[in-house]
Lab assay of single mutants.
Amino acid sequence: TTYYDVLGVKPNATQEELKKAYRKLALKYHPDKNPNEGEKFKQISQAYEVLSDAKKRELYDKGGE
């Protein structure tokens, strides 16, 4: 599973699309609303952290993490 899959976006997604997808999923899986989905929330946050940063995203796209 790639970070793009976690957020449900395509690899060519814009920053705005990433932000929108992250917010939607973060609300859905937030531990306050969904106590059993803490791990999913962490995955979503990690994916967004990497993909929202241009340098980290470039490194990730080249095969790094």
Score class of each variant (00 low, 15 high):
Tyr48Glu: 00
Glu16Gln: 10
Arg23Met: 15
Lys62Gly: 08
Asn36Phe: 10
Lys33Phe: 14
Tyr29Asn: 04
Ala47Thr: 01
Leu25Ile: 04
Ser52Trp: 04
Glu65Pro: 12
Arg57Lys: 08
Asn36Trp: 10
Glu49Gln: 09
Lys19Gly: 11
Leu59Ser: 10
Glu39Asn: 07
Leu7His: 00
Gly38Glu: 11
Thr1Met: 13
Gln15Cys: 09
Lys20Val: 14
Thr2Val: 05
Ala13Leu: 02
Leu59Ile: 14
Gly64His: 15
Thr14Ala: 04
Pro35Ala: 15
Leu18Pro: 00
Glu16Cys: 08
Asp32Gly: 08
Lys10Thr: 12
Tyr48Asn: 02
Leu18Ile: 15
Lys42Trp: 07
Lys40Thr: 08
Lys20Glu: 15
His30Met: 06
Gly8Asp: 05
Gly63Lys: 07
His30Leu: 06
Lys19His: 13
Arg57Ala: 03
Phe41Arg: 05
Val9Gly: 00
Tyr3Ile: 04
Glu16Asp: 11
Lys24Thr: 14
Lys24Phe: 12
Leu27Lys: 13
Gln43Asn: 12
Asn36Lys: 10
Arg23Phe: 15
Gln43His: 08
Arg23Asp: 15
Lys62Ser: 09
Asp5Glu: 09
Pro31Leu: 06
Tyr60Pro: 01
Arg57Pro: 03
Lys40Leu: 11
Asn12Pro: 03
Glu37Arg: 05
Ala54Leu: 09
Leu51Phe: 01
Glu65Ile: 15
Lys55Gly: 14
Tyr60Asn: 02
Asp5Tyr: 06
Ala54Ser: 09
Lys19Pro: 00
Ala47Gly: 01
Pro31Phe: 06
Pro31Lys: 06
Lys42Asn: 09
Lys42Pro: 03
Ala54Met: 10
Glu58His: 06
Leu51Asp: 00
Val9Ser: 02
Phe41Val: 03
Asn34Pro: 04
Asp53Phe: 02
Arg23Asn: 15
Gln43Met: 08
Tyr60Gly: 02
Val9Asn: 00
Val9His: 00
His30Val: 04
Lys28Ala: 10
Lys19Val: 11
Lys28Trp: 08
Ala47Val: 04
Thr14Lys: 04
Leu7Thr: 00
Lys33Met: 13
Asn12Trp: 15
Ile44Lys: 02
Ala54Asn: 07
Asp5Met: 08
Asp5Pro: 00
Lys42Asp: 08
Glu49His: 08
Gly8Ile: 02
Arg23Gly: 10
Tyr22Gln: 03
Lys20Cys: 11
Gly8Lys: 06
Lys19Ile: 12
Leu25Gln: 05
Lys10Trp: 08
Leu59Ala: 15
Gly8Ser: 05
Phe41Tyr: 09
Arg23Lys: 15
Asp53His: 03
Glu65Val: 14
Gln46Ala: 12
Lys56Thr: 09
Glu17Phe: 03
Asp5Cys: 07
Asp5Leu: 06
Lys10Gly: 10
His30Trp: 06
Lys10Glu: 12
Glu16Lys: 12
Tyr60Val: 03
Gly63Leu: 15
Thr2Ile: 05
Lys62Asp: 05
Asn36Gly: 08
Asn34Gly: 07
Pro31Arg: 05
Lys24Met: 13
Asp61Gln: 03
Ser52Phe: 05
Tyr60Ser: 02
